[in-house]
Nucleic acid binder design. Structure first.
Length: 317
DNA sequence: GAAGTCCGCCGTCACTGCAA
DNA sequence: TTGCAGTGACGGCGGACTTC
């Protein structure tokens, strides 16, 4: 398989081998079919005979991999724009985006695929992914981000807002403390309230953790940083400092709030991109296995056709 | 060993579609 | 209308491999 970088070209080796192999034996002309209706395919045999075959193979699914015709057009168009001057880079970008049509998500495509084809696994939703975690780590939330503190401790921030702190040298879950951030409403029974202060003197954000420790999020730089520190302010246990956006007034506070929002957005997008790539890989794997299955089915059908032809055709001898 | 190429991965930006 | 999740595009980086 090769992805021609930045040029929207996509070719699959199995696809290529598959079609090449087919051309040596038979040529297949697909007829217009609707989804769910029987497929009638025109098969031309090497002898020149043409037969109509009602397919048992499911009809093509909507795919993120576009049809060869569309690909050809896209590549040609982009080649044109690439030949033009570099000063038209912005226009190229717009043209590319116009050329690209929005396609459904990999999860949606694969799930549609799996509903039609029993052998195709579904891409699980986040919920089921968590349910599918092995038993030995089932009690831990799936971490979204893991940070190492300056003291060597590990902080895992899970999607549900759970902060996990583990000490190095401890055996997995043993050294783990699970904390729950509560943004609004009453905390669930037994949950630990992580106290949150909007800004400290050094321009950082602090999560006050029971046990006289503070998880400090840096507010500057490209990457969010987290540290465990001794509290810089003497806050009594149980006192929660609310950080409402309405309480930010000064330009510096507004700027820092914007920075914090940007970092949060970047972090989320980073995770989303990872997840998207994971799904894409899964989807491509699924397509590859489906191609293999269809290849086998096609060979069987061709053999069956040959057998039937031998039976039905009168012998000339 | 140095230089070049290819490939995979990652972070970010821009954009779209959808749900609230 | 708005916020957010999802995804393509783009550029950078590092490792593996090839060529000289």
């Amino acid at each position: 398989m090769w992805w021609h970088r930045h040029n929207l070209c996509f070719r699959h080796p199995i696809e290529e081998d598959y079609s090449g192999d087919l051309e040596e034996k038979v040529s297949v002309a697909g007829s217009g079919t609707r989804r769910g209706s029987p497929t009638v395919t025109l098969v031309q045999l090497p002898s020149g005979q043409t037969v109509h075959v009602q397919g048992v193979i499911p009809t093509p699914q909507p795919s993120v991999i576009q049809s060869p015709q569309i690909q050809t057009v896209q590549v040609a168009t982009i080649a044109e724009t690439d030949e033009s001057a570099d000063s038209e880079g912005v226009i190229d970008s717009h043209k590319r985006r116009e050329i690209l049509s929005r396609r459904p998500s990999y999860r949606k495509i694969l799930n549609e695929l799996s509903s039609d084809v029993p052998g195709v696994p579904k891409i699980e939703e986040e919920k089921s992914e968590e349910e599918g975690t092995p038993p030995n780590i089932a009690t831990m939330a799936v971490p979204t981000s893991i940070y190492q503190t300056s003291t060597g401790q590990y902080i895992a921030i899970a999607q549900g807002g759970t902060i996990q702190i583990s000490n190095p040298g401890s055996d997995g879950v043993q050294g783990l403390q699970a904390l729950t951030m509560t943004n609004s409403g009453a905390p669930p029974p037994g949950a630990t309230i992580v106290q949150y202060a909007a800004q400290s003197a050094d321009g950082t954000q602090q999560f006050f953790v029971p046990g006289s420790q503070v998880v400090v999020q840096g507010a500057t730089g490209d990457m969010p940083t987290y540290q465990i520190r001794a509290p810089t302010t003497a806050l009594p246990q149980g006192a929660v400092m609310a950080a409402s956006p309405g309480s930010l007034h000064s330009p510096q506070q507004l700027a820092e709030e914007a920075t914090r929002k940007r970092e949060l957005r970047l972090m989320k997008n980073r995770e989303a991109a990872k997840e998207c790539r994971r799904r894409k890989k899964e989807y491509v794997k699924c397509l590859e296995s489906r191609v293999a299955v269809l290849e086998v089915q096609n060979k069987k059908l061709i053999e069956e056709l040959e057998t039937l032809k031998d039976i039905c055709s009168p012998k000339t001898d």
